[in-house]
Design a protein around this nucleic acid. Sequence first.
DNA 1: CAGTGAGCGAGCTTCCGCTTGACTT
Length: 627
Amino acid sequence: MSKNLVIVESPAKAKTIEGFLGEGFTVKSSFGHVRDLAKKGLGVDIENKFTPNYEISPDKAKVVAELKKLAKGADMVWLATDEDREGEAISWHLFESLDLTEAKTKRIVFHEITKPAIKNAIANPRTIDKHLVDAQQARRILDRLVGFELSPVLWKKVRPSLSAGRVQSVAVRLIVEREREIMNFKSTSSYKVVANFISGNANIKAELNKKFTSHEEAKDFLKKCEAEASRKLGFSVAQTMVVAQRLYESGKITYMRTDSVNLSETAINQAKAAITGNYGEKYLNIRQYKTKSKGAQEAHEAIRPTYIENQTIEGDSADKRLYDLIWKRTISSQMSDAELEKTTAVISVSGASEKFVAQGEVLKFDGFLKIYLEGTDEEDEDKQEGMLPPMKVGEKLKVNEISATQRFTHHPARYTEASLVKKLEELGIGRPSTYAPTISTIQKREYVVKEDREGAERNYGVIILKDNKILEETRTERTGAEKSKMFPTDIGMVVNDFLLKEFPQIMDFNFTAKVEEEFDEIAEGKINWTKMLSDFYKPFHKNVEQTSEHSERASGERLLGVDPVTGKNLYVRIGRFGPMAQLGEGNDENNKPKFASLRKDQRLDTITFEEALELYKLPRVVGEYDC
DNA sequence: CAGTGAGCGAGCTTCCGCTTGACTT
């Protein structure tokens, strides 16, 4: 009996596969990467063709020792890591660190975990693709060079222990730029006019095809009319991944750290059976999706329920909700389109050129909407909404009520953890396995904070025409309230502005896409990986040296004005203990500058001269003591 | 917890991507 050792990346996979292969095969897992660049120092010999200095990762020493032992006693070692750049590199690192030989090593890949797929893989082995491995080495080393050369510049020019990197710095940039857009946003308002008509005993809701910019215009319009007769879940990214991990480990869903949209044949057949069984043939529309995002590597299947016939699972409420979402998405992706019939009625008003428009929508066939509609208890009136009663052209309608309501334009939305991930995904920056860690890193460095904001009350005008009388009133609403949104901090903004000024190429949203193209060329054997690194590193390193030598410290300093009492300059900047105000300069003994910390709700780029002066006023109320 | 901001120097910090499990809260 020959002895075979198969190595995959994840232990859950190993267990399943061992069942398929049967006797003579032992299946073990590497638990992801086993080696990495040396933790201390740069870990790359720049002078010597970027030779990497790899070390067995401390937490993998045991795994490697065990695999080495098993490999020694095996007749054949099958490297069955994922079929993408990282997976190929894991196989190569295993080959190197387990002291394998080419004669007794085979590389296999499979796209779904089924018995025939595994058997087929075993029957069609290949060798390690060194070009693909080199592409991974280039990726790894470039990230190390960028991170470990930029970070020290920040320690010197801004503050110790800060960090910069290809992914995290761009994530911070997105948040900073969004905040500035919001700061510069000027809200405008206009009046939206809505009318309620009566036809027979049915109501028709219609909106005017024009909005009025002022209260007066809206009122004038109503006067003219007077004369007339006639995405869902509220989890954080980290929480979601914890729940998903739990579902994965208990065998309820497939692998979750993937952005693949590809479903296996097995899955599609299961979905087909579930759809035809539950809803009938006409709800079925089999499709195969292809990914849109750049850099997706398709080593895995799309996230889906392992057993699609199970519509619900046992577990706590978070488990059930996430499973429900995954189930519905999977099933609906293979269902027919919904068919809607749209009707538009145009209603004119005598004495005014503007027209009211009523939109009616009737669901002719629910298609994939069936599984979304099923769960919600829809009330009958809700169903009626959107439908138009039968009307004749030229029919005269009675007006029940016309109202003009003041509406304000909204600034762009701040990012949530989830929307930031979505944006990074669109830009092809970062990978599913790193989105959650990246978000926690930029918060740990205090570049951004996740916060709620209360918002403020705002008045808005309403003009109502009813029973031929015009009524004007002022109502209030809450605006600007935010929940779990990402806000940049002062330090985040200072670091971002510094990096953007000194290293614009790294901060470019297309930087990752550009280097990814080159990694692809390495993988295809078109260019040499050390040449690619050298072409990148030479100008980059020169830039680092120049900046380190010549650029000024970045403190976000702003001169707010001159204190009328002392005649000294009043500044704000980032100091040793965070954002602060500084009155006067110089360091002579009887003429020292005075310092004051900014309050928590104040920011370097928005604080006014008066607010900063206020910080120096004594006595100050710091709180109230309740005795 | 209050309130910090003299100066020097040694030694430290840091990246991204693949996978769980051991730990504390």
